[in-house]
Design a protein around this nucleic acid. Structure first.
Length: 679
DNA sequence: CCGCGGAGTGTTTTT
DNA sequence: CACTCCGCGG
């Protein structure tokens, strides 16, 4: 048994030992909050608490896995601790007990795209698109409805704040929200917001309260500042029977306001539990004082006062963070890539470096440059491959196998058949929904289509579905069958089908890890694969762990020796859409704060002067967050670097490099981005 | 009734 | 520039 006392400071130890009653841990960036959770779990388990009576709710699955695997290294019993994201916990619980509140078994989870499609159908049915004045588009509608649910406010309130020009549709959208809710219930669908909403409803029943009280004795919530109203309520209900609730967070790091989160939950915790213990972790073990000085100044400049002043416990001053100016994005990419290589040669391996940005597109020029220099990297954030049309097409075929009443998926599948459009698809879907079983669908509905214009296509589909449904084959084999059927459709539908084929191959690899199709589909909707598509494998024989490129949002909770933060431009960070709202600018500022505090030793902030957004040249202005005397005084300002200084090192004959598909994509994305052909 | 081509619009972060 | 929506030709 290890001695916990040796590994923690006084406040951390206090947090670990405060097992009974409500506890609020206010943990500044880098103050060892992960460590506290890890050792608290360990401490509980070693005090003979049944590990499965501990519930650990985290923000990402990665975070839960990391903390539990660390604790398990000390004591394998920690593996049985229950945990995950709010959404995955909701799914598991609803799967098991959903019947209690009238949910039918075998519901399917709608992702955002599916939800938009469903909302579109409801709007059409209500005749909202026939109006003279343009009704909001389906993605806007989904976002309005979702926001109203997560923040527990009316549609009108959301419109007033976010879309004042659509305020006249408030009543219609409220109506749509109700229609959409009915539609989902009828079709056995559940969307991301419903997962939380229904979990909340379920937990509020006497039966579930009794069950949950027996099940969990200790509840912990990480990143509590990023929970929304609904999640706060869920936490409170779970804690009710035993009041052994610990929440951990940092109000200065609340960056998910767009999803309805608010630091109100964490601020109000002491009012909610007047007897709670408040433990502050203020010593920073991660960064040098020079890095923290910048972070502290950024905090200081905010209107909202955050009480933190991070003090480095490392007793290292370190190099001052550098602010680097470049002429344009290409020059920026070249210099950053050079610098990364330089640092690697000096001993900071790629896996200890990261490049962060507000939006994923900011790093596209750098990705092209890294690929050109054969620097392996992996990306997090941005366009997810599971949201791309080809992946969704394939998944829809699997979805109808498990849920034959899934009209959205049937529609998607049928529309892919040559000669089938919306009308024919609607008619077929109506027949399918009327059929008593999957076998009847395949045998009767599809049988009737022989001789029609699309008869041949329908017959092929029928044969594939029949085999995939009836033969006892594993998930991988089922997917392979669909892929074989889909191959000609893919080629016909997309010019870049050979690139998209890579994604489908990845999908097949993932599917082979599953025994149950239902589990595969659920994981795909709720905990989709994290790996970025644009991973460039090292071509050198020796394995080298890749460099990380990530959005700031996905870098939360992580740390690296060296961090590059790209795009310190007004309009990028803060993003242009936030500029009209003071609270949104403030959230952007917290995002900036999160980014800075990821760095242990080296921090580079970069921007380029000549912009090219939407094909129009413009001159970028330095981000307002650094363009203040007190922040600038904490930085070493370098540049502008002359292009001639770096151009020579970057040019290599393209023929010498085996161009992989990924690089082709990158090249295309780069040329699109710059709006010109490659020379 | 399908599918193609032109016009118009909005462009972020994630479960 | 990319994506969605609308109108017309087959």
């Amino acid at each position: 048994m290890i001695d916990i006392r040796e590994r923690l400071n006084a406040s951390q130890l206090q947090a670990v030992r405060a097992t009974e009653g409500p506890v609020l841990v206010l943990a500044g960036a880098g103050s060892g909050k992960t460590r506290v959770i890890e050792y608290r779990v360990l401490h509980l388990v070693q005090s003979n608490v049944n590990p499965s009576s501990i519930l650990l709710l985290t923000f990402t699955r990665k975070a839960a896995r990391e903390m539990l695997s660390r604790a398990s290294q000390h004591d394998p019993r920690c593996k049985s601790v229950d945990g995950g994201t709010f959404h995955s916990f909701a799914y598991k619980t609803l799967k098991k007990y959903g019947k209690t509140i009238g949910l039918t078994e075998g519901f399917s989870v709608l992702d955002e795209g599916d939800a938009e499609e469903a909302i579109h159908r409801c709007s059409t049915r209500l005749g909202f698109f026939d109006k003279e004045k343009r009704f909001p588009r389906k993605d806007t509608l989904r976002s309005i409805i979702s926001m109203s649910i997560n923040k527990a406010v009316s549609v009108g309130d959301v419109l007033k704040k976010e879309y004042p020009h659509f305020i006249e549709f408030a009543e219609d959208i409220e109506k749509l929200r109700a229609t959409y809710a009915e539609y989902k219930l009828k079709k056995n669908y559940i969307d991301y917001d419903d997962l939380l909403l229904f979990l909340r409803l379920l937990l509020d029943t006497d039966e579930m309260k009794a069950r949950m009280a027996g099940r969990y004795r200790y509840v912990m919530v990480d990143e509590y500042q990023d929970t929304n109203k609904l999640q706060g309520e869920i936490t409170a209900i779970l804690a009710e029977p035993h009041r052994n609730i610990m929440v951990v967070g940092d109000d200065a790091q609340c960056i998910y306001g767009f999803r309805g989160s608010s630091h109100e939950n964490i601020m109000r915790f002491p009012d909610q539990y007047p007897d709670c213990r408040v433990i502050k972790l203020e010593e920073n073990y991660r960064s040098t004082q020079s890095v923290l000085n910048v972070a502290n100044t950024v905090l200081e400049n905010m209107k909202n006062k955050y009480s933190k002043c991070l003090v480095s416990a490392r007793n290292v001053t370190g190099a001052r963070p550098q602010l680097l100016f470049f002429r344009d994005a290409v020059e920026e990419a070249e210099c950053v890539a050079s610098k990364i290589k330089e640092l690697r040669d000096e001993g900071t391996t790629l896996s200890h470096q990261a490049v962060l940005s507000r939006s994923s597109y900011i790093s596209i020029p750098l990705q092209a440059e890294l690929a050109r220099r054969n620097i392996p990297y992996q990306t997090f954030g941005g366009l997810k491959f599971y949201e791309t049309a080809h992946v969704k097409d394939v998944m829809a075929h699997l979805k109808v196998l498990t849920n034959p009443k899934d009209e959205l998926s049937w529609n998607r599948v049928l529309m892919l058949i040559d000669g089938v459009g919306p009308r024919i698809s609607d008619r077929l879907v109506a027949d399918i929904l009327a059929a008593p079983s999957f076998v009847d669908i395949v045998n009767d509905v599809f049988e009737q289509q022989q001789g029609r214009r699309f008869g041949e296509g329908a017959a092929k589909l029928r044969s594939v579905l029949n085999t995939a449904y009836n033969e006892s084959i594993n998930v991988g084999a089922q997917l392979s069958l669909v892929l074989e059927y889909y191959a000609p459709i893919l080629k016909n539908r997309f010019d870049d089908w050979h690139l998209r084929n890579n994604d489908l191959e990845t999908l097949r690899q993932i599917s082979m890890r599953y025994d149950s199709l239902e589990d595969f589909l659920a994981d795909f909707a709720i905990e989709p694969p994290e790996r970025g598509v644009w991973r460039v494998e090292p071509e050198t024989p020796e394995e080298e762990k890749p460099l990380t490129l990530s959005t700031i949002h996905l870098a939360k909770g992580l740390e690296w020796d060296t961090v590059f933060l790209l795009g310190l431009i007004d309009g990028v960070l803060p993003v242009s859409f936030s500029l009209d709202y003071e609270d949104e600018i403030e959230e952007e500022q917290r995002i900036f704060y999160v980014a800075i505090t990821r760095a242990k030793n080296n921090l580079f902030l970069t921007l380029h002067h000549e912009g090219n957004r939407g094909g129009i040249s413009q001159f970028n202005k330095m981000s307002r967050f650094i363009d203040t005397p007190n922040v600038l005084s904490k930085l070493d300002v370098t540049g502008p670097v002359k292009l001639s200084d770096v151009a020579l090192t970057a040019s290599e004959p393209a023929e010498d490099i085996a161009i992989s598909y990924d690089k082709e994509v990158l090249l295309k994305r780069l040329t699109d981005y710059l709006g010109k052909k490659p020379s």
